[in-house]
């Protein structure tokens, strides 16, 4: 039963991943990507990593994909199509992908993954404490580094937003309104 579900999910992931890179409509490839991410979340659910699955859905599916769609909406017209890529580039990318696949497969087959029984799911408290722990195995450092990164991104966003605002208020229309 679980095997069947796994294979279904795996097929979904592979098919939509390929569709995502081959589609010539930008928004469609984003949606295929969304399906890939949802499939990955499904695999997390399957192995009882509920928290990780929900994170996957919230951050990737709900957050990043929505942002990508949003930016596509801003710049992309419905009739636009992405241009075809040169054959030489295609071959190059194919070779790179094959190389990557080879590296992955050799790693996976070379390492002997021990099968452990972890049918009990992890408590929320453990995750929370782990994130804030500064002892060995704690995640406080990456947690804080990510927050600094996000802060930098936010400052960048504000700079960009402010810049456009200054630009628009320079226009004569705005001035004539203020005068009135």
């Amino acid at each position: 039963m679980e095997k069947i579900i796994f294979y279904i999910l795996a097929i979904i992931i592979i098919v939509f991943a390929i569709a995502s890179v081959t589609s010539r409509k930008m928004l469609r490839s984003v949606i295929y990507l969304l399906f890939v991410l949802c499939g990955i979340a499904g695999i997390y659910f399957l192995i009882d990593y509920n928290f990780l699955a929900a994170i996957q859905l919230t951050v990737y599916a709900g957050g990043i994909i929505v942002l990508i769609i949003f930016s596509v909406l801003l710049v992309h017209h419905i009739e636009m199509e992405l241009e075809d890529i040169k054959t030489s580039k295609k071959i190059l990318v194919g070779l790179a992908s094959l190389l990557g696949l080879g590296v992955f497969l050799t790693t996976i087959y070379a390492y002997n993954f021990p099968v452990i029984e972890n049918s009990n799911s992890i408590d929320m408290d453990t995750i929370g404490l782990g994130l804030l722990s500064y002892e060995a195995g704690g995640f406080i450092l990456p947690f804080e580094v990510i927050s600094v990164l996000l802060l930098a991104a936010m400052i960048g966003a504000i700079v960009i937003a402010k810049g456009t605002k200054i630009a628009t208020s320079d226009k004569p229309k705005g001035k004539s309104l203020e005068k009135n």
Partner: peptide, 20 residues
């Protein structure tokens, strides 16, 4: 076991339908 979190995750996907 992550009920509320899952709800938030699910509801964040619903908006994609409206955007699309």
């Amino acid at each position: 076991n992550i009920g509320i979190f899952f709800l938030i995750a699910i509801s964040s996907i619903g908006v994609i339908g409206i955007l699309l």
